[in-house]
Design a protein around this nucleic acid. Structure first.
Length: 539
RNA sequence: GGGGGCGUAGCUCAGUCGGUAGAGCAGUGGACUUUUAAUCCAUUGGUCGGGGGUUCGAGUCCCUCCGCCCCUACCA
């Protein structure tokens, strides 16, 4: 074992190791035999592969080629070495790092292709003549998937490919696990989710999606900050799971010996901050809901929730529209798309045009052909569609709940998925915690944004009368079944906060995972969550 | 919860009517100093997801369990 080695491996029983891993261990030993530690050290001044390609200098490359040719010709003509014309080499040099994705060994010349997060493939040539001896040996013994650093001048090959003509190659890390097939890549969905560390390097699209996700979240923060919002962090561990109607996860805190819930929404804490005097606040963080998983639901999901004191539903709709347009701009730039029409599956969604706004009642009547106030027609339609008209215990649903069943079955799917659309003016009884419209108390000042057939997030004018809030809380609690009442109780402190006085406000929440799905053109939430929830593997 | 599909070499996949388990890539040995999925010669590699059954014989048929995917239902 090499004296350079700083990490000494525990011996592993070789009969338990797959023969392909054993072979890779043997190649690692061969590198050690060269006196090189296969697990390298800190390396400064690395250039990203995309930047390395941009640094190529055609004129310098040509000048170098001419001077090499001239010296070769002079040697052939018998010119003594001391009288040869000077070697001209102003080619830019780079030091690069990446995973080996292709390896072509031509004997005394080895071709490698490296990949990093900025480029799928960048070619490196390792020649016995021009590279140092250890580096050449490393290149010969490299396996696909190893992490290498290479250094040398940028040149263009006969075939026209910009290449680093290495004079040094150093191993940085060994890939002992055989990588996916070099061309087809990793296609097994389960492996992609379970071993995201492989998927990320082996599937360039995966790296692109998560890079884009990061850019979008960053752009969102910059946008909101520039609008005068401040970012806050409120409890994820809550003694009561409020702010939404969803089944929470339960945990226990030993120090205080109390049960705690993982939050289902930050809403009630953010509103407390408005009471405290923060005017514009937002939080980007995880919510947890103990419910089913499907293409649009992961048990933990990221939401931006935002409150604007002295605003209302319409003012936060306006913020959302400008925010999403800005994010579409970032996504378009990142994906190399001109304009603000972004593909999502078969759809082309136009983020540049003003978002549609339609009242709930108008959308209902437009799609059903009769007004939602025509309860006989509504019940008839619900029956015809085979919709639920009573609850689990057989108690008939209120008219408005049946209206909503019909609405969700017929009107909601009729929203043009290619046009971001706010549905506004919901029936008040559907949104008990929303402030009623000032002109018509049967209507709640709530707007839901739909894009690409998905519900992206609600917008509200917030209730700020503590007595009404308390009455609605109590009304809601009275209607709970046994299971729900175990995790939902009266939030007296929130009512106390409202008694201190919360300014009128608009609030909204956007599902960031769904937004990233739309802007990164991914059909399932699992493809925009790095480590989606999976059943544990058995040992 | 209900229905459907899938699971074969490290990876990507074939496998006919139930009759000795296959290919490409990767790997290994060899040749090669401008390759591009390099090429050429030789070659290793399998508990066919696990268990049980039917059969002279099971990757293939049946039962069961595990995992994943899709549809559907539930879900602020």
């Amino acid at each position: 074992m090499s004296e350079h080695d700083t990490q000494t491996a525990e011996p592993t029983p070789s009969d338990e190791i797959h023969h392909l891993e054993q072979q890779r261990r043997a190649n690692r030993d061969a590198v050690r035999a060269l006196g090189v530690d296969p697990y390298g050290q800190r390396t400064d001044e690395l250039v990203a592969l995309a930047d390395a390609r941009a640094r190529y200098d055609e004129a310098a490359d040509l000048a170098n080629q001419e001077s090499v040719a001239a010296r070769k010709q002079a040697t052939k003509d018998g010119t003594p070495d001391s009288d040869l014309p000077p070697l001209v080499d102003d080619r830019p040099r780079v030091r690069i790092a990446g995973r080996v994705v292709l390896h072509r060994d031509n004997g005394k010349l080895v071709w490698l292709n490296l990949r990093d997060a900025t480029s799928e493939s960048f070619q490196v040539a390792v020649s016995k003549r021009d590279c140092d001896e250890a580096g050449f040996g490393v290149a010969k013994k490299t396996d696909l998937g190893d992490v290498l650093v290479a250094e040398g001048p940028l040149m263009r090959t006969k075939a026209g490919e910009v290449t680093v003509w290495a004079d040094a190659v150093r191993p940085m890390s060994k890939c002992l696990v055989p990588p996916p097939e070099k061309r087809a890549g990793l296609s097994d969905i389960e492996t992609r989710y379970r071993q995201r560390y492989v998927d990320l390097w082996a599937t360039p699209d995966t790296m692109r999606v998560f890079t884009l996700r990061s850019r979008l979240v960053g752009a969102m923060r910059r946008f909101l900050d520039s609008e005068g919002f401040i970012e806050v962090e409120t409890p994820m561990l809550q003694t009561q799971a409020g702010g939404a109607a969803a089944r929470p996860f339960l945990t226990h805190m030993n120090a205080l010996d109390i049960d705690l819930f993982l939050r289902i929404a930050p809403e009630l804490y953010l509103k407390r901050l408005l009471v405290g005097g923060m005017r514009k606040v937002y939080e980007v963080n995880r919510n947890f809901r103990n419910e089913g998983l499907d293409k649009q639901h992961n048990p933990e999901f990221t939401v931006v929730e935002l409150y604007e004191a002295f605003g209302d539903m319409a003012s936060v709709c306006d913020i959302t529209e400008r925010l999403i347009r800005e994010l579409a701009r970032v996504a378009a730039a990142e994906r190399g798309i001109e304009g603000l029409v972004l593909p999502f599956g078969d759809l082309s969604i136009d983020y540049g045009a003003p978002f549609e706004r339609i009242r709930y009642a108008d959308l209902f009547e437009r799609e059903l052909g009769f007004p939602m106030t025509d309860t006989d027609a509504v019940r008839e339609k619900a029956a015809a569609l085979g919709l639920k008209t009573s609850d689990d215990k057989g108690v008939p649903l209120d008219d408005v709940l049946i209206v909503n069943e019909v609405f969700e079955a017929v009107a909601e799917p009729a929203i043009d998925p290619a046009k971001p659309t706010f549905v506004t003016h919901y029936p008040a009884s559907l949104s008990p915690l929303t402030r009623p419209n000032i002109d018509d108390p049967s209507i709640a000042d709530r707007a839901d944004l739909f894009i690409g057939g998905m519900e992206v997030g609600p917008h509200y004018t917030e209730l700020n009368d503590p007595d009404i809030q308390e009455a609605k809380f109590r009304e809601q609690l009275a209607g709970l079944d046994d299971e729900e009442s175990t995790f939902r109780n009266f939030d007296a402190d929130f009512v106390r906060a409202l008694k201190v006085g919360m300014p009128p406000a608009g609030g909204m929440g956007l599902g960031i995972d769904r937004l990233v799905m739309l802007l990164a053109d991914q059909r399932t939430i699992r493809d925009v969550v790095l480590f989606p929830q999976m059943r544990p593997e058995q040992a």
